[in-house]
Amino acid sequence: MTEPIVTFQNIHKSFGDVEVLKGINLDIKPAEKVAIIGPSGSGKTTIIRLLMTLEKPTSGDIIVDGKNLWKMDKNGKLVDANEKHLRQVRGDIGMVFQHFNLFPHMTILENCMTAPIHVKSEDKKTAKQRSIEMLEKVGLGDKLDNYPSQLSGGQKQRVAMARALVMRPKVMLFDEVTSALDPELVGEVLEVIRDIAKEGEMAMILVTHEMDFALDVADKVLFLDEGVIAEQGTASEVIEHSKNERLQSFLKRFRA
């Protein structure tokens, strides 16, 4: 059996007095596509934010490619990770946000090529070429010199995906990437994700409300409810054949 690329070991996370995650255990294999579904407030987004180091877990360990993300070894003792350690470990992870978060002061091309140049010390020419290829792949090869404000929501989200992909992550996180889009723009974004998924080499974690899409793309679906994984299995097991009552009623609201 292949070693998992990401492991959550008994992860708890509280915001003030509110415990959002109550002991999450999770293995994600390389190239595995995992969809996380569940009612709002169930902690779906928190899971991937912990993995991206945007939030710190209250307790528990996250292992990425064999390395502990939030803790590091110092003279034989495990201590809280410093920035240097976090940067070493999270380099394998990329993320696409609900609200795109493109850099508004940069062109589309600059949005994509800045991180390879400064973070990975790639030379400018290579970074530019790879960024252009990636933008062409998401269908925006003709917008290179435009600014984000000149794009539609769907186009912005495709740029955000290209920007993350240029960094060649081993794990890509999608945080409700279609929730902020007008309905007619959802399709083009899902199409791109489908294409990326087909290429296969990257693990993907998708927090989503698009059930049909999850059914189509995901190898595994997790149903998160009140901070615990209430149900997991293949997409068809969870979405079509589950007996979990809360999951049933959750799904009913989407099928209506």
Binding site: F97, N101, H118
Partner: peptide, 25 residues
């Protein structure tokens, strides 16, 4: 805040985030 988060997701250091993303804006 999303700008800092996006820069973090691209694995920028806090100095790079300030210099390349936050200060220019």
């Amino acid at each position: 805040k999303g700008q800092t988060e996006a820069a973090t997701a691209l694995n920028m250091s806090s100095f790079q985030r300030m210099r390349l993303i936050i200060l220019p804006q």
